[in-house]
Design a protein around this nucleic acid. Structure first.
Lengths: 343, 343
DNA sequence: TTGAAAGCGGTACCAG
DNA sequence: CTGGTACCGCTTTCAA
C-alpha cells in the first residue's frame, strides 16, 4: 500500500535515532575512532542492520577531505601489459580497503589532462599514471593541490613524484651481445613515437650499446609511426607491410626490436604474408612478454617486463605514498630477455 | 617566504568574495541555472581564473544527490572483447561530459558485490555490469536505492533493468548448417562454467539446433572447467592438453566451438603441440572476433560480436537510462559467423 | 537578477 | 565514553 517505494536512503542520523544514541557515537563506532560500550555497540549494530544502512563515502570524503578511491590512468586498456598489471594491483588494493577506478585515455593528452582534473574534483586519494606525456603541468598542479601521484612504467625525470619503472638499460647488453654472436650487423627499431619518456630512454640506451658494439642502430634503422599507438596489432601489421613493400630486402635490417609484443606480432604477420621466414630471413624481438607472446607461431622472443611484479611494486609504492612520503622515491624493476623462436 | 606552500584549495566562497558577489550567483553562473548579468559574469570569470578555481564534484554530488560518474564493472580486463568495447563507450561518454570508472572484479562474486556497494557509496549516476552472476540481490538493492543499472552482454532475465546483449541464437543456424554440410556428426563445446546467463543461453540454443539437425551435442560433448575463467589463454591450453592426453582421438569430437577466442587460441596451441592439423584433424570455432583472432595461425574462424557496435548501443542505452526510463528496455545485437582458416 | 540561508551526510572537536 | 554542534563545498529554494 505504501506509495514511497523509493523511500529515503537511510543515513547516519536515522541510525542514531533508531539506536537511541547520538550521531557522533555512531560515527565513532563505525570508524573505530573511540571505544564505545558493548551495550551501545549492540544497539547501533541492530539499528544498522534493520535499516540496511551503509555509509555515504561522498559525504565522508567531503568532510575528511580525502577518500579511499585510487584513480589509475592508462594510455588504453587494449594491451594486456596494462590490464595484467592492474589485476595484481587491484587485488592488493581491494584487500586493503581501497577501490580502484581505471580510466583509459586513449593516448589523447587532452582526455588525459581532463581525467587529471576529475581526479581533483572527485577527491581521489591517489592517482597512478601509466606512461602519459605532455602532462607535467597538470600533474604538478594536481600534486600541489594535495593529490599525490605515482608514475608507473615511467621515470619521474624532473618532476618530484614517486615512480616505479623498468630498468630499460641492462637487458640490452645481453641482447646486443647475442645479436653480435649471431652475426647481425644492424638492428631495426619498430616503435611508436618516442614522446613517451620510457621509450626514449630505451631507444637511447639500445642505440648507445649497439654502437659501442659495432651494431648499426641509427636514423636509418628507426621505424616509427604515430598510428602504432592506437591499434598495435593491426597498425603494426600495416606499417611493416608498407616497409616491406617500399624497400628492397637487401637494405632492410635483418633483426628487429619492437617497443611492444603487440607490435611485434603485427610485424610477424606481415613477414609471413610476404613469405619471409622468421627467424631466418628476419628475426624479431618483442617487449613486455604478454601471455600471448608464447602463443604465436613462431613463439616470440621478447623482453619480460613482469606484470605481476610491477603490480606488486606499485602497491608497495602506494603504501609509501599514502603514508605521506612523496619525495620522489624511485623503484626500478629489472627486465629479462626471454629467448624463444623468433630470434 | 610564505610558509603555506600547500595553501588552501580555492572554493566557491573565495571566488564569490573575490568577485564581490554571492556564492549562489557563482553557482548559478557555473551551472547556467539562471541568467546573470554580463558584468557579473565578467567579474566571476576573472576571479575564477585568477584563483585557478575548479569546482568540487564531491560536494556537488552530495548536494545534488547524484553525479556524472559512471561505473563499469567487468569480469576482468584481460580480454580485449571488454576493453575494445570500453574504448568506444568511454569516448562517447567523455564527449558527453561523463566520466567512466572501470573496475575488474576478477570473476569474484564477492569483489563484484563489494564494488556494487561502492557504487552506492560513491554516488555514481549509473552502473554498467558486464556479465556477472549471483548478484541479483545486490543489483536489486542498488536499483531500489536509486542507482540505475544496465546489463551488458547479458539479458535481464527476471530482473527489471535495461540491458544490451547479443542474440546468441540465430548465428547457430548458419553454423550448424555449415557443420553438417562439411560432414561433421558431433560438436564439442569448450566453455567456462555456464553460470553466466549468456553462456547458458548460447549453450541451450546451439544444443537445440544441433540436435534438430542430427548433430550430436550433449553431455559427452560438453567440456567445461572453472579454471577457464581466469587466464583464458593459458588455462584453455592446459585444459585442452589434458583432454587430448586423457582421451583417444577417436572418441573426441572433431569440431569444437569455444566460448571465447582466448580459449580457442589456447586450444589451438594444444592441438599443434600434439601434432594435430587444424582444420583437418580438428577444426575449431571461436567467439568474439577479437583483433587477435586473425593474427594466429591458422586464422581463427569465429563469431563476430562487434565490440564497437556494443559500445555504441551501450551508450544509446545509457542516454535512455539517464533520462529516467529504466523499465526493462532491451537491445539485442546480431552476431555474425566469420569464416577463416580454422574451420 | 541577486543574496541569504538551509541543508546534503558525515566527521571531529569539545564539553560534560 | 557520550552528546552536541560547527563545518566540509556546493546547490537550491525563497525573499528582496
Amino acid at each position: 500500500m505504501s506509495e514511497n517505494n523509493t523511500r529515503q536512503k537511510p543515513n547516519i542520523k536515522m541510525v542514531a535515532q533508531k539506536a537511541g544514541v547520538s550521531v557522533g557515537s555512531v560515527s565513532n563506532y563505525l570508524n573505530h575512532s573511540t571505544k564505545v560500550s558493548t551495550d551501545m555497540a549492540h544497539k547501533i549494530e541492530n539499528a544498522i542492520s534493520s535499516l540496511d544502512y551503509s555509509p555515504d563515502y561522498v559525504a565522508a570524503s567531503l568532510r575528511r577531505k580525502k577518500s579511499t578511491n585510487i584513480m589509475v590512468l592508462s594510455p588504453n586498456l587494449n594491451n594486456t601489459f596494462y590490464t595484467k598489471t592492474l589485476s595484481t594491483y587491484t587485488k592488493l588494493a581491494v584487500k586493503n580497503g581501497y577501490y580502484i577506478q581505471t580510466f583509459g585515455y586513449e593516448y589523447s593528452p587532452e582526455i588525459e589532462r581532463n581525467a587529471l582534473k576529475r581526479a581533483k574534483a572527485n577527491k581521489v586519494c591517489l592517482v597512478v599514471v601509466f606512461n602519459g606525456y605532455d602532462d607535467e603541468r597538470e600533474i604538478d598542479k594536481l600534486v600541489s593541490s594535495g593529490v599525490p601521484v605515482i608514475l608507473a612504467d615511467r621515470m619521474a625525470g624532473k618532476m618530484k613524484v614517486n615512480s616505479v619503472a623498468f630498468n630499460n638499460n641492462d637487458v640490452f647488453k645481453e641482447m646486443i651481445f647475442l645479436l653480435k654472436s649471431k652475426g647481425y650487423k644492424r638492428l631495426g627499431i619498430l616503435t611508436e613515437p618516442l614522446t613517451l619518456l620510457n621509450l626514449k630512454r630505451r631507444y637511447d640506451n639500445v642505440k648507445r650499446i649497439s654502437e659501442n658494439n659495432n651494431i648499426q642502430c641509427g636514423e636509418t634503422e628507426l621505424f616509427c609511426d604515430e598510428s602504432l599507438r592506437l591499434d598495435n596489432f593491426q597498425n603494426g601489421y600495416i606499417f611493416m607491410t608498407k616497409i616491406l613493400e617500399e624497400n628492397p630486402y637487401e637494405i632492410l635490417p635483418k633483426c628487429w626490436l619492437c617497443s611492444s609484443d603487440n607490435l611485434a606480432i603485427g610485424a610477424l604477420k606481415a613477414f609471413k604474408e610476404k613469405h619471409y621466414q622468421v627467424p631466418d630471413d628476419f628475426s624479431i624481438i618483442g617487449f613486455d612478454n604478454i601471455a600471448f607472446s608464447s602463443f604465436v607461431n613462431p613463439q616470440l622472443t621478447t623482453v619480460d617486463q613482469n606484470q605481476q611484479v610491477l603490480g606488486e611494486k606499485l602497491w608497495e609504492m602506494t603504501e609509501i605514498t599514502l603514508s605521506g612520503d612523496i619525495s620522489g622515491n624511485e623503484m626500478i624493476i629489472p627486465q629479462q630477455l626471454v629467448l624463444r623462436e623468433s630470434f
